[in-house]
């Protein structure tokens, strides 16, 4: 799964999709995840990075991550490989 190349996220958490004209807001951990996705990190790498920064267990994060990415897929912000 990859984030679409023209999707940008600002530090304040504003996401704009130039293809659809839709805008979104994300919270700080969401900003982190989108930036990791832009750096082409895979799920395992992202999970490791997040768990270094935030106080969270792997199963909890991975469940929330799947949900988050599922929504991004739904909003056409990411594409499946």
């Amino acid at each position: 799964m990859k984030i679409k190349p023209n999707i940008a996220v600002s530090d304040s958490g504003f996401v704009f999709n130039p293809d659809t004209g839709e805008s979104f807001t994300v919270n700080p951990i969401g900003v982190d995840i989108i930036n990791y996705l832009k750096d082409n990190k895979n799920t395992g790498e992202i999970s490791t990075q997040i768990r270094q920064k935030y106080n969270v267990e792997q199963p909890t994060f991975e469940k929330d991550f799947d949900d988050f990415v599922g929504l991004m897929l739904n909003y056409s912000l990411v594409i499946n490989d």
């Binding site: 600002s10 958490g13 504003f14 704009f16 805008s23």
Partner: peptide
């Protein structure tokens, strides 16, 4: 400008 919309939306 979208910038303005972004600022009011996030801040």
């Amino acid at each position: 400008d979208m910038e303005e919309f972004q600022i009011i939306s996030t801040r």
